[in-house]
């Protein structure tokens, strides 16, 4: 620690992340505990006898005290066992992993396009600040953020599927499809997701760079006779990374955690649909597992943002 503060800071962030995840698991468990509804009832239907319901509850272990069930559940997770679904007896991880992979595929496709595009547009907006390219970029991205995503989805579907028949309206993908086929299938949802997250990241990039542009060293760079775009990209942007990364990671987390609506619109077999299906069936273990995975994604990505921010600070990277 005396030699390099970075190692210390990183270890601190990592342990904080794990602690946060533990707290999240407790919150998720408590949340599902106070949910109304009864699993046994929803499995057996309205006409079940009280005796049958009691038997099933006993069988499913629902009569144990909550604390015991929490530690039981937590212990299972630590061993890599997310439990079994109450409704169909399937192993949750087996059922979920395929869905998670699909969601990650969709999210990465959107991120690979949206992140660089947002940064480039942000840089261009700063270069022509107050002029028409800046206003155009801000106008378009703000509009796309303001339209609800299902609306964007239906508009894109109408134009690209109905009018021009370029892409399919249903984005269901299977393991047997080739990469090219998968990409073709998810093109419209990716487009919609890009439009949804672009504005936020672009605005933040623009604001962060503009903030740095007030610095004295930007004047130094301008007085060296550098091109405006060189000044922005070489001198301003590296000092604006920390705030930009934070917003990028927040949006990435949204792409994984918050795409339920888009998945439903395009019948995409991802995590969101999986979660929604099992919430309606009162399948608590699945809901808990999904919640935990989402929490892990959120915390993990924010941790990455923190770490990148730390690494982007030359004072920490190169101590005196």
């Amino acid at each position: 620690m005396t030699r390099n503060p970075i190692v210390f800071l990183l270890a601190q962030r990592l342990s904080l992340g794990l602690l946060l995840l533990l707290a999240a698991s407790a919150l998720i468990f408590m949340g599902t505990e106070i949910l109304p509804g009864d699993v046994a009832q929803s499995i057996l239907g309205q006409s079940a006898t009280p005796q049958a319901l009691a038997n099933l509850r006993n069988e499913l272990g629902l009569n144990e005290p909550a604390l015991a069930r929490y530690f039981d559940w937590l212990g299972g997770i630590l061993r890599g066992d997310l439990g079994t679904a109450l409704t169909n007896g399937q192993d949750i991880w087996t059922a979920m992993s395929g869905r998670l992979a699909n969601t990650l595929f969709l999210a990465s496709c959107a991120a690979i396009i949206a992140v660089p595009l947002a940064i480039i547009l942000g840089v261009i907006a700063v270069r022509y600040r107050g002029q028409w390219p800046d206003k155009l970029i801000s106008g378009i991205t703000l509009t796309s953020v303001s339209i609800p995503e299902f609306m964007l989805g239906y508009i894109a579907m109408f134009v690209l599927t109905v009018q021009f028949r370029i892409f399919p309206s249903v984005s269901t993908i299977y393991d047997s499809m080739s990469l090219g086929e998968k990409l073709h299938a998810v093109a419209i949802p990716v487009l919609v997701l890009v439009l949804v997250v672009l504005g936020h990241m672009m605005r933040m990039t623009r604001a962060a760079i503009l903030n740095v542009m007030q610095s004295a060293y930007i004047e130094t760079a301008e007085l060296k006779g550098l091109r405006p775009i060189t000044v922005i990209a070489r001198h301003a942007f590296p000092n604006a990374i920390a705030p930009v990364v934070n917003v990028v990671m927040l949006n990435m987390a949204y792409l994984i955690v918050g795409v339920v609506v888009v998945e439903v619109v395009f019948v995409f077999p991802g995590m969101g649909q999986y979660l929604v299906d099992h919430v309606t069936k009162r399948d608590v273990p699945v809901v808990q597992a999904c919640g935990l995975v989402f929490a892990a994604v959120y915390i993990g990505l924010n941790m990455v943002a923190d770490i990148v921010s730390i690494l982007s600070n030359p004072r920490l990277r190169h101590p005196k």
């Binding site: 060293y217 004047e219 301008e222 006779g225 004072r315």
Partner: peptide
């Protein structure tokens, strides 16, 4: 700028890019 005429600023600490 930066070729025929150059500039030395008051606070070098602020006038150097901290990331380079």
């Amino acid at each position: 700028r930066g070729q025929e005429v150059t500039y030395v600023a008051q606070s070098a600490a602020a006038a150097f890019n901290p990331a380079m």
